[in-house]
Design a protein around this nucleic acid. Sequence first.
RNA 1: GGCCCCUUCGUCUAAUCGGUUAGGACACCAGCCUUUCAAGCUGGCAACAGGGGUUCGAAUCCCCUAGGGGUCACCA
Length: 482
Amino acid sequence: MSAPRVRFAPSPTGELHIGGARTALFNYLFARGTGGVFVLRIDDTDLERSRDQYIDKLVASMKWLGLDWDEGPYSQSQRLEIYREEAEILISGKLAYHCFCTTEELESGREAAKKEGRTFLYPGTCRNLSPEKREKLLAEGQKPVVRLLTPDNGQTVVSDMVRGEVSFENSGLDDFIIMKSNGLPTYNFASIIDDLKMEITHVIRAEEHLSNTPRQQLCAMALGYKLPIFAHVPMILAPDRSKLSKRHGATSVEEFKDGGYLPEALINYIVLLGWSPGGEEEEIMSMDELAAKFSLDKVTKTAAIYDVTKLTWMNGNYIRDYPIDQLISEALPFYENIELVTRPLEDNEQAYLEKVVETVRERAKTLAELAQVSTYFYRDDYDYDQKGAAKHFQKEGVADLLRQAAGSLLKLSLFNAEAAEEKFNNLCEELDISKGRLIAPTRLALTGRMDGPGLFAIMEVLGREKTAARLFRAAEFIETEF
RNA sequence: GGCCCCUUCGUCUAAUCGGUUAGGACACCAGCCUUUCAAGCUGGCAACAGGGGUUCGAAUCCCCUAGGGGUCACCA
């Protein structure tokens, strides 16, 4: 058997959202896992709605996610001749025909049907137009559409890897349009023609296309092609079970990127929507592991509701384990955003950022949060947490205690976390107070907060001078403003 | 409305061809660890949409009902 060929064929009418990304991912994994070829195709036959800017964004999002394709991107708008040729073959074989019915005529037919409570199906008005009549209308300059001649009875059975055999009554299918009057193919026609011409072996796409598949299959059969294997994967729904849209918050890949999510985390999260490695298998998986494990027979039939909570947990996981250099380069824009750093970074700034990131990474779930919790490493203008101050700055002799701590830290010849901690331990022993008594107000003085990384790790990053200065400043604050 | 698909904890899901105390993950709660917060570890809460069949035995097979989704355009 020759290598599988799959494709991802979005239309450039909006940003890549997680549903599309998941479909692309499944195709990608299937190709990588089977030694197949992954084709990217832009289904842009709708000139009205297609925008080049979306193609750029789509390509950028795919690359960011790590979904590299082997062929393409092909654009349907550059393949128009192919669809016209195929349509001609159908027409000359009497398997398709020109239809001159106007939009108005069809519309009134639809309304009449609606009144009677039935569905409108194109009645085949132009099926048996005489050649003379047809030539006459053409000579008058009328622009016809091309309709596929479909069987009136029997059924069309779609064989689907996810759903099994799905059968459709042909009586419910009318002679649908394959070429519009402007000479452009309709989606159903262009899509299947391309799948056929590009020798796509497996059409893996969202379930919303299942109902259209019999139409596409009919086109393929009329032209005598061998059908690809279909696999309609479940859709991804918003938390309220409706189709994903803007009002559901972030749904596009770009928005997740801007929100501080890592591509590996997004990939890992969406792959679990509609597929699972099964049983009690580990859920954190790299792209390579996914490619090795992925298979279409483990794809679920049920639509999944997307919920950002688990994605966020997973992102935190990746932030913790990411290679530091990569984490920094991904995080840098977020540090810039809240004006903690300015690019390009000097070597010492880079080194400092690395230390900062190492000490805070364990408690951030997004890159935005990572930058946020790094603030006090870059700025002195923070306020003291009110509750914390009330609790720890109010105790008797705190100001002196902080000064004393600062003084002894300044005496250290080697200033690092270990040495600072030892110093604090000694000081507490000398003064006969509990460690917490000293540590709590010190933390507040150094960061303004009551949570955060280990205190001595913070000191080491801040350095001796800054640590001492902040302790003195807090002592001053307690005596004067508090 | 016609047609098509789907229905297991709040969410994502597992349960080889019918036999499980219906498993895991996130979230939540509790405990442990700890200088705080996280992380980590341990434990807990929590589901087979409903109703009929078939069967010794059904989450699993069949039918009906309900609910959700998709699709029926000269959109993709």
